[in-house]
Every structure is written in structure tokens, then in C-alpha cells.
Design a protein around this nucleic acid. Structure first.
Length: 293
DNA sequence: TACCAGGTCTGAC
DNA sequence: GTCAGACATGGT
């Protein structure tokens, strides 16, 4: 897709269309890298920071509609300048059947380029938590502290800035149901109110990881998620409870400790690791949810 | 009731 | 450096 070819559709909105073979909105949004979207009229309302867009499937294509001034943002957000065919091919031919199947099934998943602050606070809430509850907590925080906005007549709340989040303390976030993560939200907000997370983009991956690990509540796994989903460091390979299970049960792995498992995958897949991690993460979750039905 | 969820932190060894 | 247990909450 040429990023400069948009179609104006009135009211200051623009529509852009791209091929759908390597862009499946449902798979991408439901893959656990972002938490603010709503199924809407056969498509999705996607929220990022204070911005909004709608995404629809149109035959074999995907169409997204947003404000003119947000078009470049969402073009980058969905990583539309990247060709995913070689990435899927690499996973599909790696010689590990589970990975190959997952890549085929998840070929439409894209790694998003999300707002760093929103990603940091979202993944602070992710630890020892499940995706529906992470979504609920983020929604409560936005409702409590985010600016009220609207898009095509639909009301939503922006994700609050670190500065705004820093105005409240641990007790406030505990009252929203954040549990023991409340102190991490308050503590990290105080740091990021003074230190720009957007500025971290200029750092090497090693330095970036160092910066992220210095934030309260950010450990190796959360740092890898942030590095991957906000700063697009595709060599990051977050290892959580699901990936650890895949490693043992599907790959027959025997290494102990998530950092060692992450290093194993990083060595195996290199700069395609982050993409492949998402393929296998979603594949396993989908598979398990089908078994439960 | 017990276990699990996109883990991290702390203190003991 | 490694490891066990604690940490909030809600769903199954």
C-alpha cells in the first residue's frame, strides 16, 4: 500500500485500503498486544492514546478510516510499510511443525507500533493477570483520568498521559482494582512524568531494556513486550506462562527459567523472533479455547 | 476449594 | 545467581 493514497470521505476523515493477506484485524487486535478496541458494525473501533480509527475487512482487503491528521499515525501503528511475507515464510520453513502451523494460521497478525506510555502502563497491569481483566482495568483508568473524546459519534476516553497518571497515588489505582500493581502504576507514572518514554526510541535495544527494567513493576517479560509492541524491537521474545508451556510441551524444551528460554528463542529466530512469538502465542491460546468449548 | 492469568519483587541461601 | 513465597483480583 502506498501510504500517500488516501480517500477523503468528508468530515475531515480519510480512508485507506491495503491488502488483507497479511493483515487480519481480528487476529492482530485479539493477539494480546493491545487492549483498547471494540467490535463494531462488522469491524473494529481501535483506540490508541487519544486517537481512534475504524478498521473493516472489505473482500480480500482491509480498510481503515480515521481523521486526516491521524492517517500517518495509524499507517505506522499497523506497521503497513512492512512486507510480512518473508517473515511468515521464515517461520513456516523453520522446521518446527508447531511454529510452521502457527505462522500459517496467524499470517495476518501484525506487530503494532503503539504509543510507548500506553504500552508501558498496559503491560504493568498484565503481570499475573488475564487479558479480559487487563482490558477492564485499562478501561477504568481511561474512564477515570482520560480526556473524553468522540469519533464518528461514538464516545471514548483517551489513555491518560504519565503526567496525568502521576497526579494520583497508589490508593487510587488500588480502588480501581489494580491490586498489588497499583504501586507500580503510581511509581512508574512519577518517573515517566519527568522522563519521556517517547525519547527511549532513540536508544539501542540494550539501553532501552535497561531503562525499562529500571521502572517499578517492569521485569524481563514486560520489558520485552514493551520493546516489541511499542518500540518494534523484533528481536525481543517475551516469555510468559503460555510461551513457557509451548516450549516444554510442543518443542520438548528442557531449559529452566524464562530468561534462558527467551535467549533460546532469540538465538533460533533472531530478528524475526518477536513476530514468531505472536504467531505461537495466539495459536496456542486459540487452540486451548477451542478445546474448552 | 484450588488453580490460573501475557510476572515481579524480596529475602534467604 | 538462584529459588521460594508473597502479592490482589476475578474467573473457572
Amino acid at each position: 500500500m502506498n501510504k500517500h493514497t488516501g480517500t477523503a470521505c468528508g468530515d475531515g476523515l480519510t480512508e485507506r485500503i491495503c491488502g488483507g493477506e497479511y493483515f487480519d484485524p481480528a487476529a492482530t487486535l485479539g493477539s494480546g498486544q493491545m487492549f483498547r478496541y471494540r467490535a463494531k458494525e462488522g469491524g473494529f473501533l481501535v483506540l490508541s492514546g487519544s486517537r481512534a480509527c475504524r478498521v473493516f475487512c472489505r473482500g480480500t482487503n482491509v480498510l481503515f478510516r480515521c481523521r486526516e491528521e491521524d492517517a500517518e499515525y495509524f499507517y505506522k501503528y499497523f506497521d503497513l510499510s512492512r512486507d510480512y511475507a518473508p517473515i511468515v515464510l521464515r517461520a513456516a520453513t523453520c522446521g518446527i511443525p508447531f511454529v510452521a502451523e502457527a505462522a500459517q494460521a496467524g499470517r495476518g497478525i501484525r506487530i503494532l507500533n503503539q504509543d510507548p506510555e500506553e504500552t508501558i502502563f498496559s503491560f504493568l497491569l498484565s503481570q499475573n493477570n488475564n487479558i479480559p481483566r487487563i482490558r477492564m482495568l485499562i478501561s477504568r483508568i481511561c474512564g477515570a483520568l482520560g480526556e473524553e473524546c468522540s469519533f464518528e459519534g461514538e464516545r471514548y476516553f483517551a489513555f491518560p498521559s504519565a503526567r496525568k497518571l502521576a497526579e494520583r497515588g497508589e490508593d487510587f489505582y488500588a480502588s480501581l482494582g489494580c491490586g498489588y500493581r497499583a504501586k507500580y502504576i503510581a511509581g512508574t507514572a512519577r518517573i515517566l512524568a519527568e522522563d519521556s518514554a517517547a525519547g527511549y526510541a532513540a536508544l539501542s535495544t540494550e539501553k532501552l531494556r535497561e531503562k525499562l527494567l529500571a521502572l517499578p513493576g517492569v521485569g524481563p517479560k514486560v520489558a520485552d513486550c514493551i520493546a516489541l509492541f511499542a518500540y518494534h524491537r523484533a528481536e525481543a521474545f517475551p516469555v510468559d506462562t503460555w510461551i513457557e508451556r509451548i516450549y516444554r510441551e510442543e518443542l520438548g524444551g528442557t531449559l529452566v527459567g524464562r530468561e534462558k528460554i527467551a535467549a533460546y528463542f532469540a538465538a533460533l529466530f533472531g530478528d524475526a523472533g518477536g513476530y514468531i512469538q505472536q504467531y505461537i502465542f495466539r495459536y496456542e491460546r486459540e487452540r486451548r479455547s477451542k478445546w474448552r468449548e
